[in-house]
């Protein structure tokens, strides 16, 4: 059995309490949410901390998916499983259900949170790619109040974010625009494994014409811009295989994968291309299917498959 080094433990009772503890205990203190990233690192003694502040009791306060007309708000303590099972979220942003179905396994999904996922900022992490694709922003709270940052500003690099040591991520906000849909695809060596490469796409259309498109990649180097070159190439165009291919080529150019046991850099680059094409195609199909049917069919369309490519 792997056992962690000694640490002190306290359960936070509110966001303010948690932030107060972080301030008081300094940078030897860490929050633990689902614990599926932090606790393995503690057991492997890869992380040094003296105080663990458990924020699971804040699930009542921070575990929610709130559907607004302009914006969807997701609390930082919302668990993977809750995201997977939210029918409302799936209807509006099918990318979530696609991605959640292929993140880890049920045991991890029962506990792991969206906040923990974004704050862990693992280079292969899937929800950052989803949030990037949807142009989400993050609400960070400290004793001085809240600030809202874009994904680009939130993500500083592998395992580094804009969240200061005495701050907390409390909410993710996703803008709602009409005429859109989305999709996610991941290639993994085995169910439950981290991505070799994942790609999320979101497309917005006005009639037959694409008005906007964003693509988010995971596991192929830093990527939080939504790839503006793809947006530019697709805006004002009518969907076609050639267009998807062009977008795929841009995705492949815009990433910087490295070779490791999951695959060679060339292969990952190829996947960035292939999966970009697949997810754009699917997002467009979903929009088209949604236009043909009524709102209810949009939802049922999300069940056509999970994001396993």
């Amino acid at each position: 059995m792997q056992v962690p080094a000694p640490f002190e433990y306290e359960r936070a009772t509110s966001v303010d309490h948690a932030i107060g503890l972080l301030e008081r205990l300094g940078d030897e203190a860490r929050l633990v949410a689902g614990g599926h990233s932090l606790i393995p690192m503690m057991k492997l003694r890869l992380t040094d901390l003296e105080y663990l502040i458990d924020i699971n009791d804040l699930h009542d306060e921070l575990g929610y998916v709130r559907m607004g007309t302009d914006e969807v708000r997701i609390g930082a303590m919302t668990r993977h499983r809750e995201l997977l099972e939210s029918a409302e979220l799936a209807a509006l942003f099918p990318i979530f259900a696609d991605a959640e179905a292929v993140i880890a396994d049920p045991v991890v999904r029962n506990r792991g949170t969206i906040g923990g996922s974004l704050c862990q900022a693992d280079p292969s992490e899937d929800l950052s790619a989803v949030c990037t694709t949807l142009d989400a922003s993050c609400v960070i709270q400290g004793s001085g109040g809240q600030r809202v940052v874009s994904m680009e500003d939130f993500h500083h690099g592998p395992y580094e974010t804009a969240v200061g040591h005495d701050e907390m991520l409390i909410e993710i906000r996703i803008p709602v625009r009409s005429g859109g849909s989305s999709a996610y695809a991941k290639v993994e060596r085995r169910a439950g494994d981290w991505a070799v490469t994942s790609v999320g796409s979101a497309v917005w259309m006005d009639g037959p014409v694409i008005t906007a498109a964003r693509v988010g990649l995971a596991a192929v180097g830093p990527n939080t811009t939504g790839i503006p070159a793809i947006s530019e190439a697709m805006r004002g165009q009518v969907p076609s295989e050639e267009l998807y291919a062009r977008a795929g080529a841009i995705a492949a150019e815009s990433c910087s994968p490295t070779t490791d046991n999951r695959g060679t850099a060339d292969y990952k680059r190829h996947l960035a291309d292939e999966l970009t094409r697949r997810t754009l195609r699917r997002a467009v199909e979903r929009i088209t299917a949604g236009l043909e049917g009524d709102a209810a069919t949009t939802h049922s369309n999300t069940n056509d498959s999970d994001g396993r490519a």
Partner: peptide
């Protein structure tokens, strides 16, 4: 056939030291 292998880097460090890196089928 599809996923298992104990691999090493050029320094002889084992790269398959957990079930995240040494995959067994589900």
């Amino acid at each position: 056939a599809l996923m298992e292998m104990i691999s090493f880097d050029e320094d002889g460090t084992c790269l398959s030291s957990s079930f995240m890196d040494y995959l067994i089928p589900t």
